[in-house]
Amino acid sequence: MNRRTVIAGLGATGLAGLSGCLGLIGMAEHESSPAGVETGVREETGYEQTVIESLPVERDVGPTNETVTVTNHMTKHEKSVDMGLLGSRRGAIFNVLTTPQVSIFGKELNPVEEMSTQELMDLVRSNYDGIDNISHDEDSDITILEQSTTQSQFTADAEFDGEDVPVNISITEAVEADEDLLVTIGVYPEYVERQEKPNVSALTEAVTTDVDEGASSGDGGSDDGNEGTDDSENTDGSNDTQSDDGSGGDNETDGNESDDGILG
């Protein structure tokens, strides 16, 4: 599975049509602040903050080729879980994505604000090879940063070290996080659903904008000798400029991120 940045280009998508105005009023650069999960809940659920990843996207848009830069942030968490015949692996992840709110004349330009969980799931699918047979399972209400939003669970087949693994994927609709928009994505094998489904809910409800940037271990996927061995994803050109459809672009900025194959 390609290690691509989920939803990395969304913040730039809605800016293309107004790039000239943005340049004139000095709004050609936009950056979110990272968010994470409260330390106590991370420890209780067994998830480790592995990296806070900066996801910059540049677009030359409009008749004057105005350059618009949007920088999103992804805070990644991982956990080793029992994966049956594969043994104990870092197969459970929880990501917190922030993307800047950008408005002109009262109109929000970042499309994440209005996207449904199904639309977000479609973006995850378009950004990662190896996810198939996606099916919407259920919706529930959840509270993030004192805001009620929808958390949807999907089932899918994901490739993990060359093996197809049935997984659950939980995605939330965007909420406001100070001056940003925030989305969470949790993935874990169906094999451990009874344990990890409530853990993902707990992590989601414990999201905080007061993230401990020094807590990242930086060793994503290094807890056994079998992980982090497939780096073929980077051979097609890392740090490519984001395509105009907002899907793709290997903007990894930290070489320590996980190669475990499930939304790494």
Rank of each mutant, 00 (worst) to 15 (best):
D178H: 09
D178I: 06
D178Q: 13
D178A: 14
D178C: 04
E179D: 02
E179G: 00
E179C: 00
D180C: 03
D180V: 09
D180I: 10
D180W: 00
D180Q: 05
L181V: 03
L181C: 03
L181M: 05
L182I: 03
L182R: 03
L182N: 03
L182G: 03
V183K: 09
V183A: 12
V183G: 11
T184S: 10
I185E: 05
I185V: 15
I185A: 06
G186P: 05
V187R: 00
V187S: 00
V187L: 00
Y188G: 01
Y188M: 07
Y188S: 05
P189C: 13
E190F: 09
E190Q: 15
V192T: 04
V192Y: 01
E193Q: 15
E193A: 14
E193W: 03
E193G: 07
R194H: 13
R194A: 15
R194T: 15
R194S: 15
R194K: 15
Q195H: 06
Q195I: 11
Q195S: 07
Q195Y: 01
E196T: 01
E196L: 02
E196Q: 10
E196W: 00
K197S: 15
K197T: 09
K197H: 15
P198V: 13
P198Q: 11
P198W: 08
N199V: 08
N199E: 14
N199R: 08
N199G: 11
N199M: 12
V200C: 11
V200F: 11
A202S: 15
A202F: 11
A202W: 13
L203S: 02
T204E: 04
T204F: 08
E205Q: 15
A206H: 04
A206P: 05
V207W: 03
V207M: 09
V207R: 12
T208C: 11
T208W: 11
T209K: 09
T209W: 01
V211Q: 07
V211D: 04
V211A: 05
D212C: 04
D212V: 10
D212R: 01
D212M: 01
D212L: 02
D212Y: 10
E213S: 07
E213C: 08
E213F: 04
E213R: 12
G214C: 04
G214T: 15
G214E: 14
G214R: 05
G214I: 08
G214Y: 10
G214K: 12
A215L: 14
A215P: 09
A215G: 14
S216F: 06
S216Y: 10
S217Q: 10
S217E: 10
S217N: 06
S217D: 10
G218M: 11
G218T: 05
D219H: 07
D219M: 02
D219Y: 02
G220R: 04
G220Q: 07
G220M: 07
G220S: 11
G220K: 06
